[in-house]
Amino acid sequence: MGQSQLIISHSPHIKGKDSIESIMYGVVIAMLPALLASAWFYGIGALKVVIFSVIFCVIFEYLIQKFLLNIESTVKDGSAIVTGILLGFNLPSSLPIWMVGVGALVAIGIAKLSFGGLGKNPFNPALVGRVFLLVSFPVEMTSWPRPLDTRTMLSIPDALTGATPLGLIKEGVAKGEPIAEIMKHAPSHLDALFGAIGGSVGEVSALALIVGGLYLLYKKIITWHIPISFLGTVALFSGVFWLIQPEKYVDPLYHLLTGGILLGAFFMATDMVTSPMSKLGMIFFGTGAGLITILIRLFGAYPEGVSFAILIMNALVPLINIAFKPKRFGEVKNG
C-alpha cells in the first residue's frame, strides 16, 4: 500500500469488540433457557407465540423503515428480535396469533420507530406492546393455560387451574382467606423455581431466568445495579409485610419466584435505551421499580405490577439522569 492511500483519522485508532449486534445477540442467547423451559412446560404453543412475535417484529420494522420512513433498515442489529422475544415472553401461550401481531405492531411501530428507532424510544417497546394488549384484550391476556403437568416430575396440586400463583393469591386474599389456606391450592416454591406454574411464556421458570441473567452479567451486557436493586427492594419490601402479618402476606421468596419479577429485573428493566446512565441512577431506577411492583401486587387492582412499574420508571429516566450524574474526577464545588 502506497503512502497516498494512508488512512488519516483521529485517535483512538483501535476499537473494542462490543457492538450493538454483539449486545443484542447476547441478550437473545440469554433468553434461550427461559424459552426452552417454557416450551417444556407449555409445549408448542409457547414456541409459537415467541416465534411469531419475533417474525412480526422483524417484518414490521423492515417494512416501516423501508416503505414508510424511507431509511435503511436496521433489522440486522438484532434489536427487533430482542423486542420480539420479550413481547412473546410477556404473553400467555394461548394468545391468538393475530393478537400477537397487533402487539408487535404497537411495540415496533409506535413504541420504537415513531420515536426515532433504537436508542430514541423512552419506553420499553415490548412492555408498551404488552400493556396495549392487556387493555385491549383483557380476557385473552389473562387466561393462562395449564402447564403440561405430565411432563414434570414435580407435584402439581390437583386444584391448579390455569391461574397464575399471584392471581390465586390476590383472589384468595380478596375473599379473606388466610395465606396458609391459599397456598394449599397454589403451586409450591419448587414448582415456581422450575416453572410448573401458570403465567406468561417467559416468566414461568425462575431458574431459567436466573441462568440467563447470570449470563448477561458474566458477559458484562448488563451490570448488577438494576437487577439487584430491583430484586432486593422486592425482597425487603414484601419481607416487611410478611414479617408483620404472615397470615395476610405471602413470603418474599414466593414474590421473587413468581410473576414477572425475574424477567423484568434481568431482561426488561435493564433495557439500555430506557434505563438511566449512571450507576446511582440505575440503583434508584431498580429500587423504584421494585417498590411500585410490590405496591401494585399487594394493594393494586392487578395481581401483577412489573410492567407498569418499569414503564413508570422509564418515564422518570430523563429526570433520574439529571438528578444522578456520575461523580466527576477532581470535581470542584461550584466551579
Binding site: D77, G119, M277, K327
Partner: peptide, 22 residues
Amino acid sequence: RKTSKNCIRCARCTMVCPMGLA
C-alpha cells in the same frame, strides 16, 4: 472506522471515562 449508529444509551462510555464524565 465502522459506521456510526444511534446512541443506544448503554452508558458504557460513562462507565469507562476515567474523568467521570458523560
